[in-house]
């Protein structure tokens, strides 16, 4: 896949983050941005199109293993960030009775 398409995925995430009115949708948009970044890194590690870096044959092209190792870290940390944000969403719902940004911010300003 062309790296430009991963830019578009990241920008779709930004657009959703700017326009979404729901907290849970905002969390999903952060995950979309994260997926775009993961795709971008995996592309950068394999620009000349090699094999997977497992059980390598000498003098053949392989994909760069370093971005792949870094992206495992990103996936695990992204899942923990998502779970923390969703748990905070549940707490926000129990406190305000809604997960819309307008309601939450409006009630906060009114007090």
């Amino acid at each position: 896949m062309d790296p430009l398409l991963t830019f578009i995925v990241i920008l779709i995430g930004f657009y959703g983050l700017a326009t979404s009115t729901n907290i849970i949708k905002s969390v999903f948009c952060v995950t979309i941005i994260e997926s775009g970044v993961i795709l971008l890194f995996l592309n950068m590690g394999n620009l000349d199109g090699g094999r997977i870096p497992v059980d390598i044959i000498p003098d053949t092209l392989i994909a760069d293993p370093l971005p792949q190792a870094l992206m495992i870290t990103t996936i695990v940390i992204g899942s923990t960030v998502t779970s923390l944000s969703l748990m905070l969403c549940i707490k926000v719902f129990h406190h305000f009775g809604s997960v819309e940004w307008v309601d939450v911010l409006g009630m906060e300003r009114g007090r």
Partner: peptide, 14 residues
């Protein structure tokens, strides 16, 4: 592969 004994290079880095 020689330094870490792992055939999977991603595991050798991790």
């Amino acid at each position: 592969e020689a330094e870490t004994g792992s055939k999977n290079l991603v595991t050798s880095i991790l």
